[in-house]
Amino acid sequence: MHFGPHLLLAALEGLVTSAVLALTALGLSLVFGVMRVVNVAHGEFFMLGAVLAWAITTAIGGHPALGFLAALVIAPLIVGAIALVAERLVLRRLNYNPEATIVATIGMLYIIQQLALTIYGPEARPVEPPFSYRILLPWFGYSGYKLSVIATSALLLIATWLVLTRTKIGLIMRATQYDSETAQAFGIPVGRVYGGVFALGAMLAAIAAALIVPISQAHYLMGQDPLLLSFIVVIIGGLGSLRGTVVAAVLIGLSDGIISMFFSPTLAKIIATLLVAMVLVFRPQGLFGTASR
């Protein structure tokens, strides 16, 4: 293959990564933006989504599309419920103290990961894609499912943006993010908003995982990379900025896809992580965010 098509393939792969990353990172960004909680267990909610998607499609059987659609709806709901319970039982009692919640979510990370290992096992298991149509380009055939992942993710991102900017729920969330005390004084149930946002964040990660699992397999350690990448995206995009998150996800996903295709993936990770650390040190508000506080 020549350089051009090679680059196109790398870019397409990168876009798929970006699509999933944008959803996952958006969840992390919402939780941080509204609650000021750094959720280290976010990657594990992603992993739970993938593992549950596998369990649901296996349980339902029949046509792959049927199981997949069920998984896409049910897995995020279960993950959201788990997140809600965790928020009520642990985070709320800690008064959302930033340092205590980091330690607590590290604890959740270990608990979820170990339970997944004990119950689900160490194997990586595939999920059959809902359809296996291949789009034939002049140089290579490309999976239609991967393209549909990009489209679905874009739709979900637009939907989230509409909810945040055009509905009352979004207004309540933004008010809580802006100033939770004043919001409470105006009768907004801040505690319930926090619970909802934490669950929503986890659900976004679970949806992303359910989408990606037909491409990469479900494994109990699969939450590590998305967590780190989401951190990177959220920091570069500016914490709490939806547009920044999406732009950064596309940027990171594309460069990750292209750099890993031409160089060593480890080197790509080293460069990306170092760059992000430097962004955080020298431009804490992110590349696109405006200075907050």
Binding site: V38, T266, A277
Partner: peptide, 26 residues
């Protein structure tokens, strides 16, 4: 890292450590 505080300090230290870890692998 000390240019940052609070949550950013935690994330920055974690990222530098991750770079160190990856360098050992590389």
């Amino acid at each position: 890292a000390l240019r940052t505080t609070g949550v950013a300090f935690m994330i920055v230290t974690m990222m530098f450590a991750q770079v160190f870890y990856l360098l050992i692998l590389y």
